[in-house]
Design a protein around this nucleic acid. Structure first.
Length: 191
DNA sequence: GTTTGGATTACT
DNA sequence: GTAATCCAAACA
Protein backbone atom coordinates (compact mmCIF):
# COMPACT_ATOMS: atom_id res chain seq x y z
CA UNK A 1 0.00 0.00 0.00
CA UNK A 2 1.45 3.30 -1.14
CA UNK A 3 1.52 6.14 1.39
CA UNK A 4 -0.53 9.16 0.27
CA UNK A 5 0.05 12.84 0.89
CA UNK A 6 -2.47 12.84 3.77
CA UNK A 7 0.20 11.01 5.76
CA UNK A 8 2.29 14.20 5.63
CA UNK A 9 -0.57 16.58 6.46
CA UNK A 10 0.63 16.81 10.02
CA UNK A 11 3.43 18.30 12.06
CA UNK A 12 6.98 17.11 11.30
CA UNK A 13 7.49 15.39 14.67
CA UNK A 14 4.43 13.14 14.21
CA UNK A 15 5.36 12.37 10.62
CA UNK A 16 8.99 11.60 11.50
CA UNK A 17 7.89 9.16 14.20
CA UNK A 18 5.25 7.56 11.99
CA UNK A 19 7.68 7.04 9.12
CA UNK A 20 9.87 4.65 11.14
CA UNK A 21 9.20 1.09 9.93
CA UNK A 22 7.72 2.26 6.63
CA UNK A 23 9.43 1.56 3.32
CA UNK A 24 10.98 3.89 0.76
CA UNK A 25 10.83 2.50 -2.74
CA UNK A 26 12.15 3.27 -6.21
CA UNK A 27 11.99 1.20 -9.38
CA UNK A 28 15.15 -0.70 -8.55
CA UNK A 29 15.72 -0.26 -4.81
CA UNK A 30 13.92 -0.24 -1.49
CA UNK A 31 14.66 -0.07 2.21
CA UNK A 32 12.93 0.12 5.57
CA UNK A 33 13.22 3.51 7.23
CA UNK A 34 14.99 3.01 10.56
CA UNK A 35 16.01 6.58 11.43
CA UNK A 36 14.46 10.02 10.91
CA UNK A 37 14.62 13.51 12.36
CA UNK A 38 12.02 16.26 12.53
CA UNK A 39 12.68 19.94 11.76
CA UNK A 40 9.95 22.47 12.49
CA UNK A 41 9.31 25.48 10.26
CA UNK A 42 8.58 27.64 13.30
CA UNK A 43 10.54 27.95 16.53
CA UNK A 44 13.26 25.46 15.62
CA UNK A 45 16.65 27.16 15.39
CA UNK A 46 18.25 24.12 13.77
CA UNK A 47 15.88 24.11 10.80
CA UNK A 48 16.78 25.73 7.48
CA UNK A 49 13.64 27.82 7.81
CA UNK A 50 15.26 29.61 10.76
CA UNK A 51 18.14 30.99 8.70
CA UNK A 52 17.11 30.70 5.05
CA UNK A 53 14.41 32.78 3.39
CA UNK A 54 14.55 30.35 0.44
CA UNK A 55 13.54 27.51 2.75
CA UNK A 56 10.61 29.47 4.17
CA UNK A 57 9.54 30.19 0.61
CA UNK A 58 9.70 26.46 -0.15
CA UNK A 59 7.34 25.70 2.72
CA UNK A 60 4.76 28.18 1.50
CA UNK A 61 5.05 27.23 -2.18
CA UNK A 62 5.02 23.41 -1.95
CA UNK A 63 2.58 20.85 -0.62
CA UNK A 64 2.75 18.08 1.98
CA UNK A 65 4.74 15.13 0.66
CA UNK A 66 7.10 17.23 -1.48
CA UNK A 67 10.81 16.48 -1.40
CA UNK A 68 13.28 19.01 -0.03
CA UNK A 69 16.73 17.91 -1.16
CA UNK A 70 19.84 19.96 -0.51
CA UNK A 71 23.62 19.69 -0.71
CA UNK A 72 25.30 19.56 2.66
CA UNK A 73 28.96 20.35 3.28
CA UNK A 74 29.32 20.76 -0.46
CA UNK A 75 29.28 16.99 -0.91
CA UNK A 76 26.23 15.10 0.20
CA UNK A 77 22.60 15.33 -0.82
CA UNK A 78 20.20 15.12 2.13
CA UNK A 79 16.56 14.21 1.55
CA UNK A 80 13.58 15.56 3.48
CA UNK A 81 9.82 15.29 3.16
CA UNK A 82 7.74 18.44 3.62
CA UNK A 83 4.93 18.11 6.16
CA UNK A 84 2.10 20.60 6.57
CA UNK A 85 -0.56 20.38 9.25
CA UNK A 86 -2.66 22.35 11.73
CA UNK A 87 -0.06 21.84 14.47
CA UNK A 88 2.69 23.23 12.25
CA UNK A 89 4.78 22.68 9.16
CA UNK A 90 8.27 21.30 8.76
CA UNK A 91 10.53 18.62 7.38
CA UNK A 92 11.32 14.97 8.03
CA UNK A 93 14.97 14.19 7.33
CA UNK A 94 15.56 10.62 6.15
CA UNK A 95 18.63 9.44 8.07
CA UNK A 96 18.99 5.67 7.65
CA UNK A 97 17.48 2.64 5.91
CA UNK A 98 17.70 -1.10 6.22
CA UNK A 99 18.38 -2.12 2.60
CA UNK A 100 15.93 -4.58 1.05
CA UNK A 101 15.67 -4.56 -2.73
CA UNK A 102 18.47 -3.62 -5.15
CA UNK A 103 21.28 -4.25 -2.72
CA UNK A 104 23.79 -4.97 -5.48
CA UNK A 105 23.04 -1.65 -7.14
CA UNK A 106 23.37 0.09 -3.78
CA UNK A 107 26.76 -1.57 -3.31
CA UNK A 108 27.88 -0.33 -6.69
CA UNK A 109 26.65 3.21 -6.09
CA UNK A 110 28.24 3.36 -2.66
CA UNK A 111 31.39 1.44 -3.49
CA UNK A 112 30.88 -0.47 -0.26
CA UNK A 113 29.99 -4.11 0.33
CA UNK A 114 28.67 -4.43 3.87
CA UNK A 115 24.90 -4.06 4.23
CA UNK A 116 25.42 -1.83 7.25
CA UNK A 117 27.53 0.64 5.25
CA UNK A 118 25.02 1.20 2.46
CA UNK A 119 22.32 3.44 3.99
CA UNK A 120 23.50 4.17 7.55
CA UNK A 121 23.44 7.96 7.28
CA UNK A 122 21.53 10.73 5.51
CA UNK A 123 24.24 11.29 2.89
CA UNK A 124 24.75 7.58 2.36
CA UNK A 125 21.13 6.65 1.72
CA UNK A 126 20.69 9.29 -0.97
CA UNK A 127 23.70 7.86 -2.83
CA UNK A 128 22.44 4.29 -2.41
CA UNK A 129 18.91 5.15 -3.56
CA UNK A 130 20.01 7.55 -6.31
CA UNK A 131 18.39 10.70 -4.87
CA UNK A 132 20.07 14.00 -5.77
CA UNK A 133 19.36 17.69 -6.27
CA UNK A 134 17.40 17.05 -9.45
CA UNK A 135 14.69 15.56 -7.26
CA UNK A 136 14.31 18.70 -5.14
CA UNK A 137 10.68 19.86 -5.14
CA UNK A 138 9.34 16.64 -6.66
CA UNK A 139 6.56 14.71 -4.93
CA UNK A 140 7.02 11.52 -2.92
CA UNK A 141 3.29 10.90 -3.02
CA UNK A 142 2.05 11.43 -6.56
CA UNK A 143 1.33 8.63 -8.99
CA UNK A 144 4.38 9.31 -11.14
CA UNK A 145 6.87 9.73 -8.28
CA UNK A 146 10.33 8.21 -8.84
CA UNK A 147 10.51 7.60 -5.08
CA UNK A 148 7.61 6.82 -2.82
CA UNK A 149 6.71 5.33 0.56
CA UNK A 150 4.83 2.13 1.38
CA UNK A 151 3.11 0.69 4.44
CA UNK A 152 4.63 -2.43 6.02
CA UNK A 153 3.61 -4.97 8.62
CA UNK A 154 6.90 -4.58 10.43
CA UNK A 155 6.61 -4.34 14.17
CA UNK A 156 8.11 -1.00 15.15
CA UNK A 157 9.22 -0.12 18.60
CA UNK A 158 10.78 3.30 18.52
CA UNK A 159 13.60 4.95 20.41
CA UNK A 160 13.80 8.72 20.77
CA UNK A 161 16.99 10.77 20.84
CA UNK A 162 18.24 14.29 20.31
CA UNK A 163 19.20 15.29 16.78
CA UNK A 164 22.65 14.73 15.33
CA UNK A 165 25.10 17.25 13.91
CA UNK A 166 23.39 20.51 14.85
CA UNK A 167 24.51 23.41 17.04
CA UNK A 168 21.20 25.10 17.90
CA UNK A 169 18.01 23.74 19.49
CA UNK A 170 20.10 20.73 20.48
CA UNK A 171 17.84 19.49 23.28
CA UNK A 172 14.69 18.73 21.31
CA UNK A 173 14.04 14.94 21.28
CA UNK A 174 13.24 14.85 17.60
CA UNK A 175 15.40 11.97 16.37
CA UNK A 176 13.56 8.67 15.96
CA UNK A 177 15.11 5.23 15.61
CA UNK A 178 13.77 1.74 15.06
CA UNK A 179 14.56 -0.07 18.29
CA UNK A 180 17.52 -2.46 18.10
CA UNK A 181 18.15 -1.75 14.42
CA UNK A 182 21.71 -2.43 13.24
CA UNK A 183 21.26 -0.04 10.32
CA UNK A 184 21.07 3.36 12.05
CA UNK A 185 23.73 6.05 11.56
CA UNK A 186 24.99 6.19 15.12
CA UNK A 187 24.09 4.16 18.14
CA UNK A 188 23.02 6.61 20.76
CA UNK A 189 19.74 6.78 22.50
CA UNK A 190 18.39 8.40 25.59
CA UNK A 191 14.75 7.42 25.62
C1' DG B 1 33.34 40.71 -4.25
C1' DT B 2 34.49 38.14 0.05
C1' DT B 3 33.50 35.55 4.20
C1' DT B 4 31.12 32.17 6.96
C1' DG B 5 28.97 28.13 8.51
C1' DG B 6 27.07 24.11 7.85
C1' DA B 7 20.97 18.45 9.22
C1' DT B 8 28.35 14.50 6.61
C1' DT B 9 31.57 10.99 5.34
C1' DA B 10 35.82 8.43 4.94
C1' DC B 11 40.24 7.88 6.17
C1' DT B 12 44.41 8.29 9.50
C1' DG C 1 41.28 14.22 14.54
C1' DT C 2 40.33 16.37 10.07
C1' DA C 3 40.24 17.14 4.86
C1' DA C 4 37.09 17.31 1.24
C1' DT C 5 34.02 20.76 -1.46
C1' DC C 6 29.73 23.75 -2.50
C1' DC C 7 26.22 27.17 -1.67
C1' DA C 8 22.90 30.48 0.53
C1' DA C 9 23.11 34.26 3.24
C1' DA C 10 25.37 38.13 5.26
C1' DC C 11 28.46 41.64 4.96
C1' DA C 12 31.45 45.23 2.52
Amino acid sequence: MRIQSDFFRTDPVSAARNLIGKRIVSKKCSGVIVETEAYAAKGDEAAHTFTRPSSRKFVSNYGAGSSYVYLNYGMYWLANVLTKGPKGNGFVLLRALEPEKGVDLMRKRRNKSKMKDLCSGPGKLTIAMGINGKYHGKSFTSRQSRFWFEETNIETKIDTDTRVGITRSIDLPWRFLKKNSDFVSKKRQVN
